[in-house]
Design a protein around this nucleic acid. Sequence first.
DNA 1: AACGTTCATGAGAATCATTCTCGCACAGTT
DNA 2: AACTGTGCGAGAATGATTCTCATGAACGTT
Lengths: 142, 142
Amino acid sequence: MTRPEPAEAASRRPTRQRSALLAVLSDTDGFRSAQELHALLRARGDGVGLATVYRTLQALTDQGQVDVVRNADGEATYRRCSTAHHHHLMCRSCGRTVELADSPVERWAARVADQHGFADVQHQLEVFGTCAACAAAREPQR
Amino acid sequence: MTRPEPAEAASRRPTRQRSALLAVLSDTDGFRSAQELHALLRARGDGVGLATVYRTLQALTDQGQVDVVRNADGEATYRRCSTAHHHHLMCRSCGRTVELADSPVERWAARVADQHGFADVQHQLEVFGTCAACAAAREPQR
DNA sequence: AACGTTCATGAGAATCATTCTCGCACAGTT
DNA sequence: AACTGTGCGAGAATGATTCTCATGAACGTT
């Protein structure tokens, strides 16, 4: 109680579990759910507890080292990402993702928020579509 | 068997439960979770089963009569809305929402999707902030 | 290198939203 | 009124995420 606050949850201890998780994230292309990542780690032999996966993912998210996107089911999916702010164009069929920078949304969001008296603005934008490959694979069937 | 399909799951039977739910949605300003709506109904005396709330909400969503937005916790929240495509500016503190039309996102999303060979594009955009009232209420404390 | 403090880990329990199951009730029809 | 199909609701089931707490690893100090 009398102890002063631990400043910030800034730098945490480096552990095997954390680097294993980062490794899987780096080797992975699309967004993966915590459950999937947990399974992948186990498959690799780098077993990591599920709770730790969630904890670490959350920490990495707070640090901006990974992006979180909720899929249609509301499940959180994660991906290692460049730290700069950006959005994603995701194929709804194969999950392939393209990072999109420089959207006009940033400025627009700031402007309308200001117009309505809102401060401290954030936004969340995802674009979904069917990529060329998946579209081609589906076309013949119709 | 020989009877032609019921066209679409368009109009279902009108029931007390459904109109009660629509009534609550109409009387409500912000987005509400299914659980909240269920509680509100119960408080009104128009008790409706939880399962029914979910079922009906889903049907209304499919018909485009309500909007669904997932909050930061991944919980689905619902609101009766105009059917035209639009986005929301939501206060992260009190939940107050403003509908935003005419964003530049539509065109931009279509363009970048095209550039990357993606077809059949959709997007999902929410803007969060702190509204003037909530900002004012918080200021003094610091 | 050994020690003690502190923080991360992990197994399993607990939570919580959402969906499923299935018997019952009711609307519309004959 | 009897029939038939559809909606309802209580509670169980599911599944992701979080919590608990005892154990173990990492770090700073001797």
